[in-house]
Nucleic acid binder design. Structure first.
Lengths: 154, 154
DNA sequence: GTTGAAATAAACCACAA
DNA sequence: TTGTGGTTTATTTCAAC
């Protein structure tokens, strides 16, 4: 996992359709070498998958909200209950007063309300606190190149 | 934007390296027709880009936090100030007591603290409230197929 | 939308540093 | 162990229908 790997990752984050020849050129390697490095990054799980970034609004999911879920019990093995709600795109166990933080995308605020209803149906859920996003400044991949994030010690 | 487009999108979200021949087979189309539909989805901006999903921990960014940023002024055109902090992977203007909600990835909690310092340096920022994620249950793409999210009226 | 052919890229390999 | 260059295989891309 050196600087070249990070540059390959950054290039693939920008555009994963880039040909290996062009990818190699960008980092000073042959197509074959670039291919081999990317293959290993996938094999090691550094690159989890190749996917497409879709505009949620185009799929009719223009409403974005973050919901703090408070619970009366340990929520550590409730992942499946949250995953069963398709409108939830992220779920994290958090430190602090709430127990789980979920990110929700729906078409309308009525549907958001219905998601809250289904959240309350989860065993141990005591309350919810929803925060609606008015505008998304940006959503971007984790920085592969930022120096402050990649101490030399690693 | 019909059911076939949604199925193509769902397949590409799962694995964007799928060949058009296999993609077409999955939705009952020839490779050429599948290719043409995907090309149009890209052109219309429904599919924004093809990218790779990278494990943040493998990049040495194992700490995830959500930070509510309170402000004393309108933050609506401060997107650039937030984007200038590379550890911020998402920034949303929100309704409620705080003004902006940001998602932050760092290597250590010390670096998280440094991000908070840089947030305070942004014009108009009055306070921050950080919530650290203890465990991520899941992070997944927006649902392309869920019926509740795609009313027939659209 | 389909089929089929040409252009292009991916995957694989033997060899070299 | 990692990279190079060439060969084979597969896919993308672009016709004509």
């Amino acid at each position: 996992m050196d600087e070249t790997d990070r540059r390959l990752i950054a290039a693939l984050q920008r555009d994963a359709t880039t040909a290996y020849a062009a990818l190699g050129k960008e980092v000073g390697l042959s197509a074959g070498a670039a291919h081999e490095r990317v293959r290993k990054l996938r094999e090691r799980g550094v690159i989890r998958r190749t996917t497409v970034d879709v505009d949620p609004a185009a799929l009719g999911q223009g409403v974005l909200a973050f919901v703090m879920v408070e619970s009366s019990a340990w929520m550590g093995d409730s992942a499946d209950a949250f995953a069963a709600i398709p409108e939830i795109v992220e779920a994290h166990v958090i430190a602090g007063s709430a127990s789980v933080l979920v990110k929700v995308r729906t078409a309308t605020t009525e549907q958001l309300q219905d998601v809250l209803r289904r959240l309350y149906a989860i065993e141990g859920v005591r309350g919810t606190q929803a925060t609606v996003s008015l505008e998304t400044f940006f959503e971007r991949p984790v920085a592969a190149l930022d120096p402050s994030a990649t101490p030399k010690a690693l």
